[in-house]
Design a protein around this nucleic acid. Sequence first.
DNA 1: TCGACCGATGTTTACGTCAACATCTCGGAG
DNA 2: CTCCGAGATGTTGACGTAAACATCGGTCGA
Lengths: 340, 340
Amino acid sequence: MSEESPVAARRTVSASDVARAAGVSMQTVSRVVRDLDNVQPATRDRVREAMTSLGYRPNRAARALRSGRFRTIGVIMFTLSSYGNMRTLDAIAEAASALDHTVTLLPVHQRTRGGVSTAFTRLSEQAVDGIVIVIEANLDETEIDLPTDVPIVVLDSSRASERPVVDTDQAQGARLATQHLLDLGHETVWHAAGPDSSFSARRRQESWRATLEAAGRPVPPVFEGDWTTSSGYRIGLEIVNRPEITAVFAANDQTALGILRACHEFGRRVPEDLSVVGFDDMPESDSFWPPLTTVHQSFDDVGRLSIEILMAEIAGSKGAASTIVPTRLVVRDSTAAPRA
Amino acid sequence: MSEESPVAARRTVSASDVARAAGVSMQTVSRVVRDLDNVQPATRDRVREAMTSLGYRPNRAARALRSGRFRTIGVIMFTLSSYGNMRTLDAIAEAASALDHTVTLLPVHQRTRGGVSTAFTRLSEQAVDGIVIVIEANLDETEIDLPTDVPIVVLDSSRASERPVVDTDQAQGARLATQHLLDLGHETVWHAAGPDSSFSARRRQESWRATLEAAGRPVPPVFEGDWTTSSGYRIGLEIVNRPEITAVFAANDQTALGILRACHEFGRRVPEDLSVVGFDDMPESDSFWPPLTTVHQSFDDVGRLSIEILMAEIAGSKGAASTIVPTRLVVRDSTAAPRA
DNA sequence: TCGACCGATGTTTACGTCAACATCTCGGAG
DNA sequence: CTCCGAGATGTTGACGTAAACATCGGTCGA
């Protein structure tokens, strides 16, 4: 009945306003906000009431300043425009949110130097408690001016990193794909690779090669791609002219899709004349034509684990272990035994 | 030569540490940091040197507390797992970054009440200067406890909102698609709709209907979908049994892809027996089989404009105008004249 | 009955920065 | 030679919160 007038917007309601309204001290308000200690239920209710009627919202900046904690995780990625990155970010955001943390996107500026485009970022202000680096590049980490005192978890990195690494088990996935094709009876398996700048792509390629070698099969030259459907299409155009190729392992589903397109255009039948395996298991992959056999990776697990490890580091645990998330092969209709 | 020892990590370097090292006052450090005023070049250099050698980073919380500005934009979205949302977020992040702002993902918690799942979010703490709502739901805005004093821009909203709205011109896009099919000589066009909870989906449907009516064509019943390939596949299964259907406008590319799959499985030829148009123009769409005719929407423009408008609001301009971004039709191989 | 102890609440102070104001230096005009 | 002003730099005091410490009743056992 008192503060009804919605006249001029007061600036901001602070804890002391609430305290005055509830007839308690600021400190008690703080305790109620943080669900702390024993505050007498009656007092608590009185404070709560005052908070809602005044529309009080704790000032996060002040809180962070005082406590030194931002309850915020920073994420560094080059681009959101890839299926994997997006899914990973989604999972990270969800996991962080469950722990009552917020996710902020830390900008990465591209820089061209000596012909190579590298990333250069100056995280000039510390406003995060931890950082997840989801970056895909031949990136010298020194190019990113990272805070020294903030825990960091890295995805898609060389294992050489001293930081904790969380990643899909690229090697296992590529082996699954390659072995599947060999098991079907193909003499060997060709590979439509991802960009050399990606650690994931490199590991998939290495594992494909190792699997062939372990089976004593010839290792054909690699088709170089860059994750895109158009690079897959270009590779597909080469493949359709070479009847001796009966099986291809594509570095990701988009590349596989591009190959499928070339096959359609030139009448190369899949899987009768050519078996194709992808990697990622995008939601669309089961509707490609034919539905794509592919390696499913669990982006959700990767995102969730990276937050778990990061939070442990933030909480002070030293030397958190790196973690590898297994994949599984999803067999659909793009693979078959070679024609006799 | 002096501070070489990397012994124990000091806590944080503050402006006063820098001031001491450079032999100036904190205020001068602050001036240098903000590139302000006239600071004697010699002094400026001295301070800069001290900053780098000490590894000084301004404390963003303190800065925000003092200035009341966070240099941060909050983004509210249900899920990142849709092509459009992801692209929009990417564009928003880029635009914000160009203006030296950071983007944070504000979590939205799902809540089920009375059988309907609604969003409930308590943005309990204000830590953003403005908010972009990219939400797709029959959402009573009161369900989200938004700060009252923060500028907001809405995407994918009913036009009824009093807030500034930025969106793709859904109506124009749907008209383009429908008219294209009519122009090819189809008697009428069927529609594989998106979920009713999406304003975009509803507007595409309305415009499809209006276009048919304006052309004096019969308006067939709507196939109800939910953006996914599997709903498109389900719709496709119905279509393949009905030879009288010669043209379909799908609410998005995924739905179209599902329809294509059903056509392949049951030998309904596209575009000879059925013309299909999508909406979005995903990067994969030109590699579908056949390459998909679709409506291209410019997510980049939507993201960029939303930030422009939001920033203007933050800067104090009242009543920012809503904006509609045009689409364009991309004709590929999934559409043709009906067979005579 | 009294003192110790415990739970509930209040008081003080510092977190790091920036705005406002104060001061200081130096050159040039009168 | 003095005074004034402009530019350079320093000092003080919030911003809103939470940690540390202080205080104040009341309960319970000896």
